[in-house]
Amino acid sequence: MNDIKKEIIIPEELYNKLTEKVSEEDDFETVEEFVIYLLKQSLSTDMENAKDEKEEEEIKERLKKLGYL
């Protein structure tokens, strides 16, 4: 991954909540670190879900072809 970064504008209220959260957690030093972590988690879950759906679809298709569904 390259180091180029882009800015994203988020509502101040949300930013303040994230700041509070970061101050409560030991794992993150800045809001930016925390947001990057959350977004990566979210994307990875989405990819996992998409993979699960594809897997389910393919297995169902195979079961149908074999007469088990």
Partner: peptide
């Protein structure tokens, strides 16, 4: 399964096996 699908007149591509094996393992 491939033999069974062929007998049933279903399309059974050998090249799909690797992907299907991954799905089954998961």
């Amino acid at each position: 399964q491939k033999v069974m699908m062929e007998r049933r007149g279903e399309e059974a591509k050998r090249r799909e096996d690797k992907t299907m094996a991954e799905y089954f393992k998961s």
